[in-house]
Design a protein around this nucleic acid. Structure first.
Lengths: 134, 134
DNA sequence: ACTGTAAGTGAAAAATATTTTCATTTAGCA
DNA sequence: TGCTAAATGAAAATATTTTTCACTTACAGT
């Protein structure tokens, strides 16, 4: 329930559509905006899906996964440990990889470049066992 | 010149538009399809830019960088060492980071998941020194 | 509980991005 | 030099995301 408290604290209202999107993302995996819209059977507008995802991302409740095919997917991350993704280039399946090997790198890069690092995205691409057979 | 040999060997023709796109990418950094189209002052069709990028990516001459704002950028990589990117969330500036800390991770994940890993994408996000002041 | 109001919503339109279609042009081999 | 399959570009189609605006709703203050 920490998600709703976060939304309120930021001055946003808890509305029906927002709860729908939250619940949908919470129960699932890594969805595109359209998948969320269709998964909810158009009980809300696609516009609202986009707007809600924008807010949830801004608040850190949801994270964006940008794939090299140009698609964007959204994942509910509250209560999850930071992790990375393994994407099958055959079927599109996405696995979560526990742990993160990048923290040290972030610090090193921060020192070298004088950037203030706010985060990172790491995706591995490959073929899942099933797609290897095809 | 290895790029043209690669294109030929794959059965594609060396055309004017393809050379324009290659030269544009080779002399520069990380461009979107539209930036390439406009950088070349519309001496070729945008359609052709997309088609050319698709081929160049397929042949490994160019790589795609997917950013979390949903944009795709293309980078000429022949002769470059594999590297990662540091993206300023303020001004969009992209630095290249030498070296790669992910090779070990790839092997570990391959063993754990039975995927055949084909590659990965790692982008760090942060604020560049100039944007920190704003 | 009731009400006022700023925030949120959805439909439609607009803007943006990418792909497909198809008639014409061209690279490069015979 | 001519032939032909591949490539091109303009336009249309499709897909994705954002903006606009009139209507609705959450919720703070009574």
């Amino acid at each position: 329930m920490k998600d709703k408290a976060t939304i309120k604290k930021a001055g946003y209202k808890i509305t029906g559509p927002r709860q729908l999107v939250l619940d949908f993302l919470k129960s699932g995996e890594h969805y595109t905006a359209k998948e969320i819209y269709e998964g909810l059977e158009k009980t809300l507008g696609l516009t609202t899906v986009y707007r809600t995802l924008e807010i949830l991302t801004e608040l850190g409740i949801v994270e964006t996964i940008a794939l090299t095919d140009g698609s964007l997917r959204y994942e509910y991350v509250l209560g999850k440990k930071h992790h990375h993704h393994l994407v099958c280039t055959g079927c599109g399946d996405i696995c979560e990889l526990d742990g993160c090997a990048i923290k040290d790198l972030e610090e090193k890069v921060a020192k070298q470049t004088a950037y203030v690092i706010s985060g990172h995205a790491l995706e591995l691409y490959g073929l899942c066992p099933r797609c290897q057979k095809k």
